[in-house]
Amino acid sequence: MDEDERAVLAEFVASRAPALIRVAYLLTGDRSSAEDLFQSALSKIIPKWRSIRHADPEGYLRAVMYREQVSWWRRLRRRRESPVGVHEPVVADPAGGTDLRLALRAALWQLPPAQRTVVVLRYYEDLPEAQVAELLGCSVGTVRSRTHRAVTRLRQILPDSELLEMQR
């Protein structure tokens, strides 16, 4: 990679890294894991930068991040170093909706990586099901079923789902 291409790559990383890091943090739920996921995906696109720089490098990098998150090797590594405090139970707080948000956050980390990735893509990135399926390399039916299972699981984990209905 010559200096010109490296300058373009540096500019791309500087401009898009914050948004990509946010997505990585949502996918992993841990700061160090998010940084590791982002750098791992970036290291995979550096050898191919010459061919993808004129296409859609951000989409390519996002797809690498999503697939890396649900990959088999990363799942093994994640099993070895589980983040602390993720599975702590959240008790009900009568002060307001803060407890519900905390409970939802804790419930999100308990989802499997594939289901959490679908939730992030559907409700944070606001991507349609077809585009999510294309990014993850699976069918639309798989995306639909994973979304349904993830929401059902979140409802089961949340302590007071009915309380949310009352607040609305």
Partner: peptide, 24 residues
Amino acid sequence: PFEGLLRSTLTDIAEEAPTVRDSL
């Protein structure tokens, strides 16, 4: 309501993301 809560929670979590320097 549940979908809205999910979206707002995800946005809150994303704001806590770390800032990475010299990642390239």
